[in-house]
Design a protein around this nucleic acid. Structure first.
Length: 888
RNA sequence: GGGCGAAUAGCUCAGCGGUUCAGAGCGCCUGCCUUACACGCAGGAAGUCGGGGGUUCGAAUCCCUCUUCGCCCACCA
């Protein structure tokens, strides 16, 4: 045995290698796209995390997934661009900074707009790169030279251009309607940002309104929000509701304020709910607003922006200034005192809450900027139906389509300070209003002074441009030409509407092309109770804790191998050791395989003779063929986004085949072909594994003999199948060897034959119990003992045993392998659902039975050959019969 | 109220064009410190594949239905 070229520790130490390797990749500039690469570009844009975010497990999964795809394509020679960046995250970031200055006892209004925005920028500059640095810790191979931020000048330019173009196309309008309003964040929200939560049990209040001149002295409405009655301007019934027809046209009086309101008929009222009478509050309910519009009702706002009751005439002094929920209690009390509360009953409903702060959203009448979405949705829908866009897994198709089919106009204005200021200008003199690419100094019509709209744009109004604004659009940049359209988007289904569908719309509208061809939607990270990991539940896992404990590769392996396409990733935050054991164990195994192989390899590894591969020992031919299988399977799995299957296939190849069988099989002959084959197979394994576990594979690959100093696995060529090495026969034959050895091991374990005892010796043992135990199996054991005599008796001899079995029993095995060919053919035909084939398959199964193998001595070979001929004949007959029946 | 998904070994999950499909990892049991690895090696126990029907020579695998979980959408106040 040659002297080991390396002294490697028996335990893989990720910390010793990760940072230096990452730095090396950076220094060598392997992450940015290589214009000299022969392949076409391959582009992924990162779902930009909030600029203030710190990495959580969901993003860990998301980004590792992207990195696997990028590294795979990079090794395949594509010009890969993985474009990183962050999102300014309007509400979220503004909230964070508001909390900060609250600690100084101040509000943003104390600071003023300019000062506040300055503070946010300072905060962003200070903390903004945290999450990107964390991505480096888990190995992400982004092109950091192209890092973008949704508020940087170039990007803002794109946002403004988009707004103005939409304006010019007549797709932006000022809408006066009831929108979702967050009384905590003090801004309007889009429909998507007002999330429906879990059903909650609340109260349905039945309230009596006095009626003048009607068929009854009063009517009863049912409501969950009694406080809104101060804003009621009508009571409505369904025109078809006979019970209440006589009320229509009469006047009701609001309790508490005694204001008169009309009783009207409207189709929107569902007669079966509550009493059939509905209180109509047009300024605080979307449906009521529509009713109000149809009937030209007054629409008074009775709450302030922060959710306190207020109105000059409608809110009585004792309620003014009360928070809406406090007001509710107080009003219920007042109603009770006035005898206007008929009854209450428990009621289950879902409340919409602000997706940033969780506050119950208040429907509120206001003026906002909207984008007309139907003209944008149509191309996105058409493109999807034409197959231009693929969702993986496909089951999200219906969700995507339904949303686009029922698209609603998008409220894009936010009453915030942090974000892209809406570029709409109004002349204070003549009222002229327009959107402008530059800040105007005077009215374009009358020369009067102008005022810019105070609001900012929805964060998603910048996010939806991400695939091209990051490349320098609207300028005609080389990057836009080269990297648009992109290829794969990796994200969570939660933002299918927020982001994905809108990017598709923007892509088609502004560039006339899809932003990406495939949307890969991965699952959610959950705890063992299947609860989503979240800060508030305290059930999260910090990916960097995992990196510190077990290394980035262990994290990556667990995330990738542990999640099937489209399913969730279940991790146990209370037991990181168990959760990440698979990754840690595998990394260590790989390390030790490398440790062993590297110790065997001489400075100059001879290439194995591909042309004369047939002359190699069976085990060599077997592992070479299995290597081709691994290349084929792993490549196919990655192409199909089956990352878990790719990982698992690598696992089986490296651990079960290369380590457990081949390494053991060649331990007794570690020279010549074995060394060459080991070097090739291990090198291939490292390449196949690199996308998933980049650090350890790069580290080991660097140590392979003959490596030039400037070579990096990160940009090494992806392996391809070498046809001459595919050898189905060798695989079958070796499988029999494996079966035979398994049978021997089984017998040894079952009869407790010590590893140090020869089977033959055990047979003639003086130990009565052992001998008696052997009696029933005497023939089998004797035969196997004979086969195994060389190999299974001592230490470190499993491989030698395999070799010996092969040599002594090869004739038997070859005959069996041929028989199996026949059997398999029978099985193939049996799937044609014929009885005859079924019977043959049963017989075939018998032939391939492990018992048979274990008992098949050389002297039955002749008999088997005879049988085999008979099989062939039957097969021929069968074939003819099938053909006559019209089966192919 | 619609739509979608999931129920397979103690745990987390593969398998789902019908005939080596009853599997993997972790855990468990029994041997092994065999000079790459005890984060390991060898062997093993363990599931009537959620319940019930149906199609078929044959079904975790296809159809129907029920139950239980989870997700998305929706103006019943």
């Amino acid at each position: 045995m040659p002297a080991p070229r390396f002294e490697l520790p028996p335990q893989y130490d990720p910390h010793a290698v990760e940072r230096p390797l990452y730095q090396r990749w950076l220094d060598r500039g392997v992450f940015p796209p290589n214009p000299n690469a022969p392949g076409a570009p391959y582009v992924i844009v990162i779902p930009p995390p909030n600029v203030t975010a710190v990495l959580h497990m969901g993003q860990g999964l998301n980004n590792v997934t992207q990195d696997v795809l990028i590294r795979f394509e990079r090794m395949r020679g594509r010009q890969t661009l993985w474009l990183p960046g962050t999102d300014h995250a309007g509400i979220a970031t503004q909230n964070v900074v508001e909390r900060l200055i609250a600690k100084e006892g101040k509000t943003r209004f104390d600071l003023g707009r300019a000062e506040f925005v300055k503070r946010v920028w300072a905060f962003v500059r200070e903390t903004g790169s945290t999450i990107l640095e964390q991505l480096k810790m888990i190995g992400c191979s982004c092109d950091w030279t192209r890092t973008r931020f949704t508020l940087d000048p170039g990007y803002s330019h794109a946002v403004r251009e988009v707004f103005v173009r939409l304006w010019e196309a007549g797709l932006i309008y000022r809408g006066h309607r009831v929108i979702h309003w967050c009384p905590h964040c003090l801004t309007a929200l889009s429909d998507e940002e007002a999330e429906a939560g879990d059903p909650e049990t609340g109260t349905l209040y039945y309230i009596r309104y006095a009626v003048e001149g009607g068929p009854a002295p009063y009517l009863t409405v049912a409501t969950t929000r009694p406080e809104t009655l101060l804003g009621d301007t009508a009571v409505a019934v369904n025109p078809k509701d006979r019970r209440h027809a006589a009320f229509i046209g009469k006047t009701a009086r609001l309790p508490i304020t005694q204001l008169p309101i009309p009783i009207i008929a409207d189709d929107a009222v569902v007669p079966t709910f509550g009493t059939g009478f509905v209180k109509v509050t047009p300024a605080h309910d979307a449906t009521d607003f529509e009713i109000g519009t149809r009937h030209k009702l007054e629409m008074p706002l009775v709450m302030t922006e922060d959710g306190r009751m207020e109105h000059s005439t409608r809110v009585p002094p004792e309620l003014a200034g009360l928070d809406r929920f406090a007001a509710r209690e107080r009003i219920v009390q007042m109603l009770q005192e006035q005898g206007a509360l008929e009854k209450t009953e428990p009621h289950t409903y879902t409340l919409r809450r602000c997706y940033r702060c969780g506050t119950v959203v208040e429907p509120r009448l206001s003026d906002q900027w909207f984008v007309k979405m139907t003209p944008l949705a149509e191309p996105a829908l058409r493109a999807y139906r034409a197959g231009m866009l693929r969702l993986v897994p496909e089951r999200w198709a219906k969700t995507y389509e339904q949303w686009l089919e029922n698209i609603r106009d998008w409220n894009i204005s936010r009453q915030l300070w942090w974000g892209h200021r809406i570029p709409v200008f109004t002349c204070v003199t003549c009222g002229e209003q327009w959107a402008d690419r530059e800040d105007p100094t005077e009215c374009r019509k009358c020369g009067g002074s102008v005022a810019q709209d105070p609001d900012v744009l929805d964060t998603w109004f910048s996010s939806w441009l991400w695939p091209f604004a990051t490349l320098g659009w609207p300028d005609d940049t080389p990057d836009v030409r080269r990297f648009y359209p992109g290829h794969t988007l990796v994200t969570a289904p939660e933002i299918l509407f927020f982001w994905v569908a809108r990017m598709v719309m923007a892509g088609y509208h502004f560039l006339g092309e899809r932003p990406f061809a495939t949307v890969y939607l991965h699952g959610t990270v959950r705890d063992t109770q299947h609860r989503k990991m979240s800060k508030s539940l305290g059930n999260g896992i910090d990916p960097l804790d995992v990196v510190r404990l077990y290394g980035a590769d262990a994290l990556r392996w667990t995330a990738i191998a542990g999640i099937a396409l489209g399913s969730d990733l279940i991790l146990d935050p209370n037991d990181l050791a168990t959760t990440f054991a698979p990754g840690r164990n595998f990394a260590n195994k790989l390390w030790n395989i490398g440790r062993f192989i590297l110790a065997q390899l001489p400075e100059q590894v001879p290439a194995f003779p591909v042309g004369r591969v047939a002359e190699l020992p069976l085990a060599d031919r077997w592992i070479l063929s299995r290597t081709q299988g691994a290349i084929r399977d792993v490549t196919a799995a990655l192409e199909q986004f089956r990352l878990d299957e790719a990982a698992k296939r690598c696992f089986d190849f490296v651990w079960k085949e290369l380590a457990d069988w081949y390494v053991e099989a060649v331990k007794s002959r570690l020279t010549g072909s074995a060394v060459a084959v080991l070097a090739y197979c291990f090198d291939t394994a490292l390449r196949l594994l690199h996308p998933v576990v980049p650090f350890i594979t790069e580290e080991l690959w660097q140590k392979l003999p003959g490596r030039r100093a400037d070579e990096l696995l990160a940009v090494a060529a992806w392996p391809t199948v070498r046809e001459p090495l595919v050898d189905a026969r060798a695989e079958r034959q070796f499988a029999l060897v494996q079966d035979a050895i398994a049978a021997i091991r089984n017998i040894r374990a079952e009869y407790r034959v010590s590893p140090k005892t020869r089977l033959g010796a055990a047979l003639s043992s003086k130990n009565d119990e052992a001998r008696r135990a052997f009696e029933g199996e005497r023939d089998t054991i004797a035969r196997l003992a004979q086969l195994a005599e060389l190999g299974f008796d001592g230490r470190a001899a499993r491989g030698a045993g395999a070799h010996a079995v092969l040599r002594d029993g090869s004739e038997v095995f070859v005959a069996l392998a041929d028989a199996i060919d026949v059997a398999q053919e029978c099985r193939r035909l049996s799937s044609e659902r014929t009885r005859l084939a079924q019977q043959l398959a049963a017989l075939a199964a018998k032939l391939t039975n492990r018992d048979f193998i274990a008992r098949a001595p050389a002297d039955v070979v002749a008999r088997e050959r005879e049988k085999e001929r008979a099989w062939h004949d039957q097969l021929q007959a069968l074939g003819a019969k099938l053909e006559s029946l019209g089966c192919s």
